[in-house]
Design a protein around this nucleic acid. Sequence first.
DNA 1: ATGAAAGTTGAACCGACTTTCAACTTATGA
DNA 2: TCATAAGTTGAAAGTCGGTTCAACTTTCAT
Lengths: 216, 216
Amino acid sequence: MGERLTSGGERAHNTAMMASEGKAPRTARGAKTMRKILDAALLEFGERGFNESSIVSITSRANVALGTFYTYFDSKEALFAALVQDMSGKVRDHVAPVFGEATDGLDAERRALAAYLDFVAHHKEVYRIIDEAEFVDPAGFRDHYETTASRIAARLAQAEQNGDVAKADAFATEVRAWALMGMNVFLGLRFGVWGKEDPDIVAAAASRMLHDGLKP
Amino acid sequence: MGERLTSGGERAHNTAMMASEGKAPRTARGAKTMRKILDAALLEFGERGFNESSIVSITSRANVALGTFYTYFDSKEALFAALVQDMSGKVRDHVAPVFGEATDGLDAERRALAAYLDFVAHHKEVYRIIDEAEFVDPAGFRDHYETTASRIAARLAQAEQNGDVAKADAFATEVRAWALMGMNVFLGLRFGVWGKEDPDIVAAAASRMLHDGLKP
DNA sequence: ATGAAAGTTGAACCGACTTTCAACTTATGA
DNA sequence: TCATAAGTTGAAAGTCGGTTCAACTTTCAT
């Protein structure tokens, strides 16, 4: 048999290693095959959406037999769910580095938005899959946004401590976080997925509004 | 035959009167049947989502025969598209009245958000259908949001004229409009669909942020 | 009254897709 | 070397739901 990949006991969100309960690949060969399926699925779901996508087409793109699919995933839905976790991580990983370069709390959010806009412009499939998760994998969808909102709220709370942003109670901070996130997502749709404006310009405009407010 | 309903020449978005090309009901009896199907579809799609919904189930809820469906709609997708237009109008109609009561441009947006939060809390199906349109009826989805964004942008531009909000060029105004809209939608998801917080409290917190900005 | 347009019915057709499975291949630990 | 676990294969089963259609009913203008 192939070499052991893990010593067992991996976390539920150990992405590509735990697609469906008890179906984790046990050799490097299996892991590679599973990765091929995941990659093909990203393309297929991104292009056609969940409904129009078929397992036949996905396995065909991945150059594996139809039956192989069920070695790693319980169902089409389980595959999608695995992909959602995977993509949620990809977005996070693409945005995370900017926080190191930020001069203050608000600058951090501006950079995060710019990075996000850049990411969705180059990965419309990812945007689409996360959005479609609302219907195909509601738990994964909710998890993604609640986690993201928590991170934003934590950053805002820290920035409040630092005196970078105006003080607010926990509730107002949560409202701010969801407002920021929604703003980012919709600017991503309009100026990343549909349009192709310079991320920095858009982020600058949004950031200015956020910094100074709308009052004259 | 039944009495004539229209003199012809209605617009494409004359909702329930023009579901699929050449399938408009020609009598009051037909209009009623079509309405029953639309109402049943709202429930069905809202509960189960597009994929899990079936025409059999929809016509069954509506108490009409399966075949009747095809008298008014070309397909399941066409039904969904008709519903999207219908719902887009419902949201607009529910929010519109608040603008009369607003004291200024920013107050108008605060009231609009509160009204929207209240609406989605009581009509989760509508929220869900518009979201799912991204995949089932992309054109309708885009139309809904571009129209909504244009309305917001127009209000902002007017408020700028009135000196209620800070001046901005056309591009920044569009960014602001999409940012506002995204904020509203996500606050609707978090505090209307998932949670049940008082719309006025949430809208007040968001409005404060929007008015004064985040700077200390 | 009557005929023709409008509307209604539901069984049956049809194609498509997910999922299963038993045979086969590959890789490796002992 | 060879026994064994892991992985792969693809034909076929089984299911399901959208769509069609020809017969039937209702309504109303004349």
